[in-house]
């Protein structure tokens, strides 16, 4: 089917695209706009600030609270992502390649975890973590993040592994590779787009989580940004913190944009082309 490229069709699609972008971007832009307003003009209802100020940004970086939370967020999300992707890759590889007893059960259980309502787990987790003395620590958040990110990682990765021709692995074995070498030097490089996609998804999940962050932490020691935001007070206790919260919201969006941009370039499709057949 030939794609119509008449001016009218272009116009129609263009309009539709703009509409979607505007719809998606308005809340984000609004927050960005609020973060640049002075307390006096905050509630004037203007989309473009009348008076521009960077005070809000100055404020949040001056409070120890936010900087500490940012460090917690980055650390926890990165560690959880790394562990989840490595474990997920190994599990997904086994699932896509091997026939072992209990395979269906494993897949079923991981799906079950993904479906489990997280809210219902918060109270038991709270009790467990207090008993284990990991409440309000990094591991206290990293562990549940890994648990809930793993099903996602396993599912995405096994789909990627299944696309890689099995012959490549056999060829590697014939060429003298051990199972581990075949995985590391042949399969993993080819699954790289899948690994990066999974890493992005898992990172976003950990970065955005509010539920666990608010329930399993109690001090700045391990509070992540989404949770810290809700404790925000602004420069002084009596000030309305709207501007500061908006500034913080903009700031915590930046790492995730950087993260995605960095990995996006690695997600090249068709990496396996030329491997088999002609």
């Amino acid at each position: 089917m030939a794609v119509e490229t008449t001016t009218r069709a272009k116009l129609r699609w263009g309009l539709l695209d703009v509409l979607v972008i505007v719809f998606a971007m308005v809340p984000v832009l609004w927050i960005a706009s609020l973060s640049f307003k002075t307390p006096a003009t905050l509630t004037d209802g203007k989309f473009i600030p009348r008076e521009w100020t960077l005070d809000n940004y100055r404020t949040i970086f001056e409070t120890d609270q936010f900087v500490r939370a940012l460090v917690n967020s980055i650390g926890i999300a990165l560690i959880a992502t790394l562990v989840a992707v490595v474990l997920g890759a190994m599990a997904a590889y086994a699932i896509s390649r091997l026939d072992f007893p209990g395979k269906r059960l494993l897949v079923g259980v991981s799906l079950l975890i993904a479906m489990f309502p997280q809210v219902s787990l918060v109270s038991p987790l709270f009790e467990i973590e207090r008993q284990l003395k990991i409440f309000d620590t990094w591991p206290g958040l990293i562990l549940p993040y890994i648990t809930f990110a793993l099903p996602l990682a396993i599912y995405t990765l096994s789909a990627f592994f299944k696309q890689i021709p099995w012959d490549l692995e056999k060829a590697a074995k014939m060429d003298g590779a051990t199972q581990g070498q075949a995985f590391r030097r042949v399969i993993a490089p080819l699954a790289a787009p899948g690994l990066f996609t999974t890493a992005i998804l898992v990172f976003i999940f950990c970065w955005n989580d509010f539920l666990f962050a608010i329930s399993l932490t109690s001090t700045e020691r391990s509070r992540t940004v989404p949770a810290a935001l809700s404790f925000f007070t602004g420069a002084s206790q009596f000030e309305d913190p709207t501007g500061a919260i908006c500034a913080a919201a903009v700031v915590i969006t930046v790492p995730i944009i950087l993260f995605v941009l960095f990995f996006q370039r690695r997600i090249v499709s068709g990496l396996t082309s030329g491997a088999v057949k002609g």
């Binding site: 012959d167 003298g176 491997a275 057949k277």
Partner: peptide
């Protein structure tokens, strides 16, 4: 790997 034999596959199985 311990048999010291080489194989050519129908699909060629080149490392892309």
């Amino acid at each position: 790997r311990d048999r010291d034999i080489a194989m050519v596959f129908q699909s060629y199985a080149l490392y892309p």
